[in-house]
């Protein structure tokens, strides 16, 4: 975009002010991430010299990562988190896509009451205590499904997908129907292939929710060996529990505790960083359709 002719030339002070603000805003995100990654890769000497967190890297030392993957606690927690995220996302996106398509044609059978059922969830939540008693009452206590089933369907995500499906070219779907394709086939062979990007964004929203699930894990999982990574991170960093310090073969000193802690932070952040770039350009669309229709 170029500056329109009628717009004033920017003042030097204005440009400098904007630049400073933008630098500050982005630095506020980058500096913490950078420090954590650098510290997790630092050797004991580097950490001792810095007196704590390391900002300027001096060489790479992977012993903190080797250490956390040599022990049970973190690998187990990561495995639990991966399973919940993969299984939960698959279930959620299947249920949500189906329902969003089922509700994408106003005027169809029972369309209004069904849609209301979903939209009404925006107005009130069931409350912590009744939900807790229901989930424990149906026997999901100490079951990893307790982290998946109660949050499997999110009405906001449904509204996002439904709005997108409603904007697909109607002629395409009508002609398929005239050719005798069933609704299932239309969904699978026409609607889903046309909506891959939005479905990916909604799947990311779900996946992030499952990966970050913390409170439900506190409520329903009493056995520490079931704990997902967020709970383990909390116990190491916020509750001051000592992380496992395994001396690696060939040395007799475990890697520095701080580096190990930071390595746990990094493995908790990484999944978000990995998927993020692929779907980032589609965010705006998904968020907006949801915001407008919701």
């Amino acid at each position: 975009m170029t500056r329109p002719v009628w717009e004033e030339k920017p003042t030097v002070a204005g440009q400098a002010g904007k630049g400073t603000l933008l630098t500050l805003v982005t630095a506020a995100v980058i500096i913490p991430l950078w420090t954590v990654v650098v510290t997790s890769l630092s050797s004991r000497a580097t950490i001792d010299k810095a007196g704590g967190l390391v900002f300027i890297p001096r060489g790479f030392d992977f012993s903190a990562y080797q250490s956390i993957f040599a022990t049970d606690r973190v690998t187990r927690a990561l495995w639990v988190s991966v399973m919940i995220t993969a299984g939960g996302t698959l279930l959620s996106i299947t249920l949500t896509t189906m329902a969003a398509y089922g509700l994408s044609r106003p005027g169809s059978l029972a369309h209004r009451p069904l849609l209301f059922l979903f939209l009404l969830t925006f107005l009130f939540g069931p409350g912590i205590i009744p939900s807790y008693l229901l989930v424990t009452g149906v026997g999901l206590k100490d079951n990893l499904l307790a982290l998946i089933l109660p949050t499997a369907v999110n009405a906001f995500n449904l509204v996002v997908l439904r709005a997108f499906f409603m904007n697909l070219p109607g002629e395409l779907i009508d002609s398929a129907r005239i050719d005798g394709a069933s609704e299932w086939r239309i969904l699978w062979q026409i609607v889903i292939p046309l909506s891959k990007a939005v479905i990916a964004v909604v799947a990311l929203f779900y996946a992030v929710g499952y990966w970050n699930s913390f409170f439900n894990a506190i409520l329903y999982l009493s056995d520490p060996s079931d704990h997902p990574i967020q709970l383990v991170l909390r116990s190491y960093i916020l509750q001051g529990q000592a992380p496992p310090g395994v001396s690696l073969p060939g040395t007799n000193v475990p890697p520095p505790t701080l580096a190990i802690k930071m390595a746990v932070v990094v493995v908790t952040v990484i999944p978000a960083l990995l998927v993020y770039p692929f779907v980032q350009k589609h965010f705006t669309k998904a968020v907006l359709t949801g915001a407008i229709k919701g």
């Binding site: 249920l95 949500t96 189906m98 329902a99 398509y101 089922g102 509700l103 044609r105 169809s108 059978l109 029972a110 069904l114 059922l117 979903f118 969830t121 089933l149 499997a152 369907v153 009405a155 449904l158 069933s182 609704e183 299932w184 969904l187």
Partner: peptide, 13 residues
């Protein structure tokens, strides 16, 4: 078929 597609998610809610 449209109703059947909606029912599982509605059941969860």
């Amino acid at each position: 078929p449209l109703v059947l597609m909606t029912v599982p998610a509605a059941g969860f809610l």
